[in-house]
Design a binder for these strands. Structure first.
Lengths: 214, 214
DNA sequence: CGTGCGTGTTACTAGCGGTAACCCTAGTTT
DNA sequence: AAACTAGGGTTACCGCTAGTAACACGCACG
């Protein structure tokens, strides 16, 4: 019961935990986001209860599993945001980084973005989306922070930056989701089109007919 | 088996169908998107199998139920897009229409946006998001059509319009989801901030420090 | 009369997340 | 050495879900 023994146990537990997460990763990569706890346990060569002993809950395992990919993706995005280039180039690089990530591992992407939400809570009231899609929320807040740090937006800049952060991330996400399903153009074209949108081409475009246009 | 009888049956079936949909509506409004078929059947005063006879599948009922709200919302959005006003005003009106709708019925909104996706298909390959969130897809395509009809975007306008349609809808959706959860500002402020983003204020903003900024 | 046909039910399957109870081995205590 | 305890692991279960097969009533048609 002394400290050294406890460390040993801790190490062993951490090793097992990592093994389980890798197994879960494999299953998710194979079966998509509806991977079952049974399947994950089988892949890890063990049975369900010890999975529950480690992660407590399915959302616990989801959170631990998501944290890995989320951290990696967020690091890449941060790097793209901090690259030494002008603003437009950074935005394009960030968009491309995200799109490349979801293109490389669509199954993981689905797991991160469309969690099963297996909850039995009453969900009364207006807590819509409170615990859904943590990655999107995190990316939105992250981007908001960067925007607020770097841009001079005048009064109310913090709130504006948060709105923009979530809005831009949502734009990226939705466009990426659609693009991944239909593949109507190359990644570079998509990046360019989205950057053009953010650069105000919507407001600058001329009307097609005589009327006031969209 | 003549025509009149068939019409009678058709009418009766349609009536039942409408009743079932209304019951489902009530349950979804009460229990949120994880409303079970059992609960819906109970609310309608009948049992599961006849629910399945009418809609075949849970996603079938989901589709039918979604179509109602989707149609209503899309009609409102179309009206906002077609209002006699300048482009900026139309965009703001469209955003406000959407946000007012999700604000009024968050449970329905969750049901539409976060379907349970209870499928056992293999999901191999890259069909990510093919059958998820039909409302977002529809709104994206709708907006793309309007953009392509009204705006003069030069070469590649169709593709550009589609990207923008899905991107803008995604922006609206993500910002609305976040806003509904945290309520950091009024609806009008949110609308204004998003319209500002679309109007190129991101590109036009000055840097805060000496560096190249975001 | 009986033969379909539509409408509804009960009772079931298969699989999910999650858990209680047990089991077995290794090390410690007396 | 004998007993006792602490984890790691398993079987067998609960309650729930979506979805279905099989059976039962009512009502028109020959």
């Amino acid at each position: 019961m002394d400290t050294t023994q406890r460390t040993d146990q801790q190490r062993s537990a951490d090793r097992r935990r990592r093994e389980l997460l890798e197994a879960a990763d494999r299953v998710v990569l194979r079966d998509g986001p509806q991977a079952s706890m049974n399947a994950i346990a089988a892949e890890a060569g063990i049975t369900k209860p010890i999975l529950y002993r480690h992660f407590g809950d399915k959302s616990g395992l989801y959170a631990a599993l998501a944290k890995r990919h989320t951290d990696a993706l967020l690091a890449s995005l941060r790097a793209a945001l901090d690259a030494p280039a002008d603003r437009r180039e950074r935005v394009e690089s960030t968009l491309d980084t995200y799109l490349a990530a979801i293109e490389a591992r669509p199954q993981v992407y689905r797991f991160l973005m469309h969690p099963t939400e297996g909850s039995q809570s009453a969900d009364q009231g207006f807590d819509v989306g409170k615990h859904s899609m943590p990655l999107l929320r995190t990316m939105g807040e992250e981007l908001a922070t960067v925007i607020e740090e770097r841009l001079d937006l005048g009064p109310g800049s913090q709130q504006l930056a948060r709105v923009w952060g979530h809005g831009i991330v949502g734009m990226m996400h939705a466009a990426g989701d659609w693009w991944l399903g239909e593949r109507p153009c190359s990644r570079a074209e998509l990046v360019r089109s989205l950057a053009d949108l953010l650069w105000g081409r919507l407001a600058a475009a001329g009307d097609k007919m005589g009327g006031p246009g969209f």
